[in-house]
């Protein structure tokens, strides 16, 4: 690697970030809000360590809570072996890191479910002009709808349909996951359809001459050809899903990073702006990590390892 490449690969991004932080640090204190001056990077980092401390403290409390229960129960048993004891669940406030985990689980659930629906549907639509004509108007109609418009409908339907005394999943989780699912469907269906419909004529002829069965045709020819487009759709979907989820959590007060941001905003303490900025950066980092994860999977599944992927 020559000097120029070295500069472009390592020094340039570093300088860019440094410049951004410098402008932020200098500019932020000049804006004074009702919650105090806008925090600079240094203050935001302090809030971050504060959140870590809070998380550890909460974990400690949880451990102690269960310890106390166990001790109490053991004592009761010792006095009267027939005594009925029970373990209560710890119900402390979810910390920042709990919320991150909730958001990731929710987005992945909605995304994976959407993939199971959208990829087969896209393959069928790509292979059959009739199916394509049948579903295309619906896709075109629903694609431009902001998934947040779905949120009230999803919430109402889930409340009405998902009734159970001992629900496996929280209603809020089902709401968020379904909203994510709805917004993941369209880009995946469309890209899969395009990928499948554009399989080279030559390969289709090979399949015809060999009289491959429908299933073998899909497995051996359609899927490998369409993999790049399927992944393009999946990556688009996951990116949108992550953005939508945060908004949905804010709007519907479903647990997750969005709720954390909203709670801090309502809280209005002098720490709030800093904490929200921590959340913004974390949201960005997770979104980036999700995309890289998809890219990794695409490289793994794609037969053409020489293809430039970015």
């Amino acid at each position: 690697m020559n000097t120029k490449q070295l500069f472009q690969t390592f020094a340039a991004p570093f300088l860019g970030i440094l410049l951004f932080l410098a402008i932020w640090q200098v500019g932020a204190p000049k804006i004074v809000t009702s919650l105090g001056a806008v925090p600079g990077p240094v203050q935001v980092f302090e809030q971050f360590t504060g959140l870590i401390d809070e998380h550890q403290a909460a974990r400690q409390k949880e451990v102690e809570f269960y310890q106390r229960q166990e001790e109490r129960n053991a004592k009761a048993k010792a006095e009267d072996p027939a005594a009925e004891t029970e373990m209560r669940k710890y119900t402390g406030k979810a910390t920042f890191f709990d919320q991150i985990w909730t958001s990731i689980v929710t987005v992945m659930t909605g995304f994976v479910l959407a993939g199971f629906i959208a990829i087969p549907l896209g393959i069928v639509a790509g292979l059959s002009q009739t199916v394509y004509s049948a579903i295309n108007p619906l896709i075109q109609l629903f694609k431009p709808v902001s998934p947040l418009a779905w949120l009230p409908i999803v919430t109402m339907i889930v409340s009405a349909v998902y009734v159970s005394d001992d629900p496996t999943f929280d209603k809020s989780f089902v709401n968020s996951a379904l909203t994510v699912l709805l917004c993941c469907l369209w880009p995946t269906i469309i890209n899969t359809t395009v990928g499948v419909a554009n399989i080279s004529k030559d390969l289709q002829n090979v399949s015809k001459v060999l009289r491959l069965s429908w299933w073998t045709h899909v497995r051996k020819i359609v899927l490998p050809s369409a993999i790049p487009m399927i992944f393009t759709g999946l990556r688009l979907s996951l990116g949108i899903a992550w953005m939508v989820l945060i908004a949905a959590e804010m709007l519907a007060q479903n647990p997750g990073l969005g709720k954390f941001v909203w709670d801090e905003f309502q809280n209005g303490s002098s720490n709030s702006l800093g904490r929200i900025m921590v959340a913004v950066i974390v949201i960005g980092l997770i979104g980036f990590a999700l995309d890289r994860g998809m890219l990794f999977l695409q490289r793994h599944f794609s037969w053409d390892k020489s293809m430039a992927l970015r």
């Binding site: 080279s200 030559d202 002829n205 090979v206 001459v209 020819i221 490998p224 037969w303 053409d304």
Partner: peptide
């Protein structure tokens, strides 16, 4: 059986 001009092998 057909031998196509552009070989038409499955590239994967």
């Amino acid at each position: 059986a057909v031998v196509f001009q552009n070989h038409s092998l499955l590239p994967w």
